[in-house]
Nucleic acid binder design. Structure first.
Lengths: 339, 339
DNA sequence: GTGAAAGCGCTAACAG
DNA sequence: CTGTTAGCGCTTTCAC
C-alpha cells in the first residue's frame, strides 16, 4: 500500500476530509474530542502530509535551497551553518546541494530544485554571468560571492581587504617577488582576488608571478608549489586554504622550509588552518555571516522574512539590511616570515 | 505576478496545455516546430515546472534527504559526498539538512522533509530507538551508524575493529592505563565504541578510565585533556577526531608532550588528521562508502534503484547489496608512542 | 463545528 | 500529432 492520505485518516476517524485537515493544522477550530480522534487516526496510520500537495495551495514552499560547489571544502560548511541558523529562526526549511564543482551539475541541480523551493542561495557559482542572470529570472536567487554584474541579481560578496593586507604584510616583511596561485577559471571570486593582488603588487612595486589556474583542492597544491619554486618567488598566495595546505605538503616533502625559505598565505581561514605546522597565515572570511546575510536577503526577496521568527532574530542581526559586501582581514600565523 | 504556469506557456504558444506539457517533457511525441514554439514560450516566460504539481502524479518525488547532526564536522562531509555520488548516478536529487546536534531540531527536520522526499538517510541520529522506529513507519529511511535494534529499520553501520586495534596498538606499546573520552550520550555509535574499548581493555588486562561524555567538538577536547591528565592514564582514545584535536590543543598549551608524555588516538580520520603535529593516529572510517552504501539501500527500499543510471553504476559498486556493516581500521601516525 | 465542493499545476488516459 | 478531461492530496470558501 502507498503512503496514507488525508482521506484515509478522515475515513478512519469517521470525519470529512476537511475536518481532518483542520484538526491537524488549524488547532481550535475543531472540537477537542474530534481533533484528538483525528490525530490518533493519523498516528496509527503513520500519516505524513504531502508537502507537494500543500505547496499547491500555499503560495510558498517554505523551503529554500543552498547550492554549493563543494561540500567537502570546510569553507562552505561554515557558510552553510550561517544560513541554516538564520533560516531556521524564520521557520523555513533549508536544503543544501553539492554540485561537485561541475557547472553542468550545477545547472541540473538548479533545474531539479527550482520547482520545489521558494528561492535559492547560489554559493560561489561556477556559472557564467549570463546563465546566472537567466536563472535569476526564473527563480528568486541570491548569488553569494559571485557578482554577475546584473543589478537584477541580488548579490552578497566579500571584499579584497584581506588579500591586500596579505600583500602588504609580505612586502613589509621584505619580500620583493610574490606568486599567486589562481583558483578555478570559472570563479568570479578568483578573478577579483587576482586583480587585487596584481594592483597591490603594482602599487607596492613588488614583482608578481601568476601561477595560473589550479583546482581549489588540496591535491592541486603540489603543482602550485612546484611552480612557485620554479618562479623564484619568496612567497606565495593561494586562491584558498585547501591549495595552501597542498603547497605546504609539497614544500615539506621537497625539503623546503616554511616560512624560512618561502612564505605561504592562504585564503578563507578554514577548519584546519591553525592545525598545520607552521600554522597557516591566511585571510579570514566571515563565512558564517556571509551565509546568514545571503539567507536574510533571500527571505526578504521572496517575502518570507515577515514570518514570525520562532527564535529572537537579534542573534543573527537585521533581517535584510546591512552591506552586501563583507570585509575580510589577514590573520597572521606561522607560515610567513621576513626574507 | 506569480510564477508562470504551464497554462501561461500553452497560451503564449497557442497550444493546449497538454501539448505544452508533452513538448517540454516528452520529446518526440510532438511536431518539432510546435515543440520549438512551446520551448520558446517557456523560455521567454522564465517558466519552471512546479515540482510539487508533478510529484502529485508521479508516485515518487525523485528526491531523498540526508540528515546529519553536524555539517561542520568533516566526517559528515565525506559521508555526504558518498551518497551524493551514488544518488546522482541514479538521477535522484539529494538534499541535505543539518540539525546541529539537537534532537528536537532533528525531529522538526524529519517532519518538514518527510513529505517532500521519497525517503531519508539519517546519519548518526541522536534520536532514541523508539522515535526512530516510529519515523521509520512513516517514511522510508535508512539509519546510518545508529542501530535502533528494530529489524524493520534498514541500517548500515561501521564495525569496531578499528578501536580494538587502537587498544591493542597501545597495549603493544606498553601502555597499561588508558582513558576513553565518550561522545554524546545520545550517540549509539559512542555506546558501541565504548563497549569495544572496555572489552578489549579487559581482554588485554589494561586499566581503563572512563572520562565521561563530551560534545563531539574540538572545543570539548580541553576538558577531556584535563581529565586525562588527572586520571594518570598514559594514553587517551577519543570518540572522534574533533575531540582529539582539542585534546592536542590543550595538551600543547599545558606543555604536555604528545606522544612522549601521553599518546592520543582519535576516530574517523577526518580532514585535518594528517595536518596536526604530531599527525593524529586515528581510526579510519570509510565515510564515503558508508554514505554510498546507505544511499543504495534507500534506493532499493523505495524502488528507485531501477531507474537507469545516467552513469555506469560500476564505479559505486553494486546498488543494494553488500554488507551493512563496514570495517574500520587503525591508521598509525605520530600521536602514539611507547610509554 | 463540520461537510461538500472547487480548484492549485500538472500528467495521463482518451478521444479526435 | 494535438485537444479534452479526469484526477493526484490538500486547503479553503461556502453552506449547513
Amino acid at each position: 500500500m502507498s503512503r496514507p492520505t488525508l482521506a484515509d485518516v478522515a475515513a478512519r476517524a469517521g470525519v470529512a476530509i476537511s475536518t481532518a485537515s483542520r484538526a491537524l493544522h488549524r488547532p481550535g477550530r475543531i472540537r477537542a474530542e474530534t481533533a484528538a480522534r483525528v490525530r490518533a487516526a493519523a498516528d496509527e496510520l503513520g500519516y505524513v502530509p504531502s508537502a507537494a500537495a500543500r505547496q499547491l495551495h500555499r503560495s510558498s514552499a517554505g523551503a529554500v535551497a543552498l547550492v554549493v560547489p563543494d561540500l567537502t571544502n570546510p569553507f562552505f560548511m561554515a557558510l552553510v551553518r550561517g544560513s541554516t541558523r538564520l533560516l531556521r529562526a524564520h521557520d523555513v526549511v533549508q536544503v543544501v546541494a553539492d554540485v561537485e564543482e561541475e557547472p553542468e551539475s550545477e545547472e541540473q541541480t538548479l533545474a531539479a530544485l527550482a520547482g520545489r523551493v521558494d528561492g535559492m542561495l547560489l554559493a560561489a557559482s561556477r556559472l557564467d554571468a549570463a546563465t546566472l542572470s537567466t536563472w535569476s529570472r526564473r527563480v528568486p536567487l541570491v548569488a553569494v560571492n559571485h557578482d554577475a554584474g546584473d543589478p537584477e541579481v541580488p548579490t552578497v560578496t566579500i571584499g579584497t581587504q584581506g588579500v591586500e593586507e596579505a600583500v602588504e604584510h609580505l612586502a613589509g616583511l621584505g619580500h620583493r617577488h610574490l606568486a599567486y596561485a589562481s583558483g578555478p577559471a570559472t570563479s568570479w571570486a578568483d578573478a577579483r582576488r587576482r586583480t587585487a593582488v596584481v594592483e597591490t603588487c603594482a602599487r607596492l612595486g613588488v614583482r608578481l608571478t601568476d601561477l595560473g589556474h589550479h583546482p581549489p583542492r588540496r591535491d592541486a597544491g603540489a603543482a602550485a608549489a612546484d611552480a612557485v619554486l620554479r618562479s623564484g618567488a619568496t612567497a606565495v598566495l593561494t586562491f584558498n586554504d585547501l591549495q595552501a595546505f597542498g603547497v605546504l605538503d609539497r614544500l615539506a616533502s621537497r625539503g623546503v622550509q616554511v616560512p624560512e625559505d618561502v612564505s605561504v598565505i592562504g585564503h578563507d581561514d578554514i577548519f584546519g588552518a591553525d592545525l598545520t605546522s607552521p600554522a597557516l597565515t591566511t585571510v579570514t572570511v566571515p563565512a558564517e555571516e556571509l551565509g546568514a546575510r545571503a539567507a536574510a536577503r533571500l527571505l526578504g526577496a521572496v517575502g518570507l522574512a515577515t514570518a514570525a521568527p520562532s527564535a529572537p532574530p537579534a542573534a543573527t542581526g537585521p533581517a535584510s539590511t546591512g552591506p552586501d559586501r563583507l570585509a575580510t582581514h589577514l590573520t597572521v600565523r606561522g607560515s610567513t616570515a621576513p626574507v
